[in-house]
């Protein structure tokens, strides 16, 4: 019996004929924050989509809470306790802020409700002022908050964030990072794709760096510091 929350082994994914992931491994322990880094086009988003079943890998294993997910459709994987904040935020153009939150809200697979509508609005007071706006009418930062709030309302054990601070002003970025720290403190495990290694090296417990669909570095924050120059060479353009 493994104690891993999420375990990904030997993921191979292709888009048509182009082979994108070449055996990606990834592990997340309960309560941990794990970073997934790499230059643009290295396969970070593809890794996330593969483990969620949004794209179908050619081979590889995905387990969550000790149970295999490979054969399950995406929605059933999420129901086990995974939430996803996608690159680009995944707004619904025809839903208001309130509706984004209401449609997502459900207890977790143990019937518990740690996160409800009020708690999410307390975390993001700015959303409370814009409840009747369409999601697409919000600023980039507000959309990101809505995407995170919507994910939290599914009461996940694992929150996956893809480029959550991308394209935001520095002050808003800081706000988002603060929220992610709070989420981590609340006991939710996180898998964070981002470019900001300075924040990630202190925020996350484990780090994975992808180069052309392969894991080039994998280790804890101590190991990351020891191998910083090597890792930075994987990330620099």
């Amino acid at each position: 019996m493994s104690t891993h929350l999420l375990e990904v082994r030997g993921l191979h994914t292709l888009y048509g004929a182009s082979h994108i992931l070449h055996g990606v491994d990834l592990c997340i322990e309960p309560g941990q924050a794990v970073s997934l880094m790499g230059r643009n086009g290295m396969g970070k988003t593809t890794t996330l989509k593969s483990l969620l079943g949004v794209v179908t890998p050619r081979s590889g294993e995905v387990s969550f809470k000790g149970q295999r997910l490979d054969a399950l459709p995406t929605w059933q994987r999420m129901r086990r306790g995974i939430a996803y904040v996608p690159e680009g935020r995944g707004m619904f153009h025809n839903l208001t802020v309130r509706e984004h939150l209401q449609m997502a809200n459900r207890p977790n697979d143990r019937g518990e409700t740690q996160w409800d509508y009020d708690r999410v609005l307390a975390l993001f007071p700015r959303l409370g002022e814009r409840l009747d706006n369409l999601g697409t009418q919000l600023s980039g930062g507000e959309q990101q908050m809505l995407a995170i709030g919507r994910a939290l309302l599914t009461n996940p054990d694992l929150l996956i964030l893809d480029e959550a601070t991308e394209g935001l002003a520095p002050l808003i970025r800081k706000e988002i990072w603060d929220v992610i720290r709070l989420i981590k403190q609340s006991g939710i495990s996180t898998l964070i794709v981002d470019k900001n290694i300075q924040v990630l090296k202190t925020l996350c417990d484990q780090h994975v760096v992808l180069v052309k669909g392969r894991v080039a570095f994998s280790g804890n924050s101590q190991q990351l510091l020891e191998n910083m120059s090597e890792v930075e060479s994987y990330l620099s353009v």
């Binding site: 949004v54 995406t74 929605w75 995944g90 619904f92 449609m103």
Partner: peptide, 14 residues
């Protein structure tokens, strides 16, 4: 309505 806008995201919400 959400499904009309973004099917994949709806599935990703369980």
């Amino acid at each position: 309505r959400a499904g009309e806008s973004n099917r994949e995201m709806v599935e990703c919400l369980g």
